[in-house]
Every structure is written in structure tokens, then in C-alpha cells.
């Protein structure tokens, strides 16, 4: 499958994940610390698609999250996604992800980075927002909650990718 096709499938899966996140968290009564589900597809893109395509796909994922996460000015999560994508590419080029533990640790690091970016961008562009302290205080718990979802989302994305590219030989956290 081409990079464009991969990106489109990742965007669609992320849209589905974000759409189902809110009602599912409410149904399970665990909405206090929602996992950052859009972060994991961005990390997957950083590992699997070329930089230009990945950045555009990350931008779209961020925009979709801007639509689902209410209360933030449009562009907040788009910027966070693109920066996260670039940092994820840099990180994974230095320390390759091998196995579930490194995947979860990388996700936690990126989640903390995303929370810090959220606090910074809110400070700069959202004068009405007063919860910067809360964002930083919850950065750790949100990272811890997001990490276990990384293997699950990677599994779904790897499997979806392999459906369209059986003959291709590439690295995947979960085998083909």
C-alpha cells in the first residue's frame, strides 16, 4: 500500500477511535483520565511513512482531534500532532522501538511532551484558558493511561496495514 493509502487508513481508524472514545469512557465510568488515543497513530506514522506524508497525516489527525475534543481553539491539537510526529521521528531514529515495553515508554514520553505543548500553546493562544496547572499536573497520569493503549492501537494499525500489503516486508511491532 502506498504511503498515502497507509495515511488514509490511519486517519480513518483514528477518527473511529476518537468517535468511540467519549461514549465508551462514559459507559465504563473511567472518564477522569482519558487516554491520548490520537497520539499512538501519530507515532505509528512516524515509524512507517515518509516525513512529508506523515506530517500532513498528523496534521489531519490533530484537526480531527480538535473537532472531537471540545473547548480548545481549532489548531491546538493539529500543532501538537505535527510537533509530536517530528519528535517521534527523531526519537525513533536514535532509539529504535523493539518490543512492547519500548513502545509504551515512547508513548509515555510523547504524551508528556503533548501535555507540555498543550499547556504552552494554551498560554500563548487561548487567553480564556486557566487550567495550565491542571494540564501539567495530569501529564503523568494521562501518559500512564495512554501507554497501555499503544500496543492495542499498533496491533490494529499493523493488521490493517498488512491487509493491504501482504507481500511487503517491513518492520512491525506485531508480526504479519
Amino acid at each position: 500500500m502506498s504511503a498515502l493509502g497507509q495515511s488514509l487508513s490511519v486517519i480513518l481508524i483514528t477518527f473511529f477511535l476518537l468517535g468511540v472514545e467519549s461514549p465508551l469512557l462514559q459507559e465504563l465510568h473511567v472518564s477522569s483520565f482519558p487516554p491520548d488515543l490520537a497520539l499512538v497513530p501519530v507515532l505509528w506514522l512516524a515509524l512507517h511513512v515518509p516525513p512529508a506524508t506523515g506530517m500532513v497525516a498528523s496534521l489531519v489527525i490533530g484537526l480531527i482531534k480538535d473537532g472531537f475534543v471540545m473547548g480548545v481553539p481549532v489548531g491546538m491539537y493539529a500543532e501538537i500532532s505535527v510537533v509530536t510526529f517530528l519528535v517521534a521521528r527523531f526519537l525513533t531514529s536514535k532509539v529504535p522501538i523493539r518490543g512492547l515495553s519500548s513502545l509504551m515508554i515512547t508513548t509515555m514520553l510523547l504524551s508528556v511532551l503533548a501535555s507540555m505543548l498543550l499547556a504552552l500553546l494554551s498560554l500563548l493562544f487561548d487567553p480564556a484558558f486557566q487550567g495550565h496547572g491542571t494540564v501539567l499536573r495530569l501529564a503523568g497520569p494521562v501518559a500512564l493511561v495512554s501507554a497501555p493503549f499503544a500496543p492495542l492501537v499498533f496491533f490494529v494499525l499493523d493488521r490493517t496495514d498488512s491487509l493491504f500489503a501482504r507481500s511487503r516486508q517491513r518492520d512491525a511491532i506485531f508480526g504479519r
Binding site: 516525513p51 490533530g62 481553539p73 481549532v74 487561548d126
Partner: peptide, 24 residues
């Protein structure tokens, strides 16, 4: 060049959107 341009746009466009939508 194309990659640099795409990267620049992907970083700047959300900031412009943030600036625009951040105002009441």
C-alpha cells in the same frame, strides 16, 4: 525542498489557526 515546505506549512498553519480561533 518539497519536504521542507510541507514541514513548514504543517507547523505554521495550525499556529495561524490557533491565533485566529483563540480570539473570542
Amino acid at each position: 525542498w518539497r519536504q521542507t515546505l510541507v514541514g513548514f506549512l504543517c507547523l505554521v498553519l495550525p499556529l495561524v489557526s490557533l491565533w485566529y480561533h483563540g480570539r473570542a
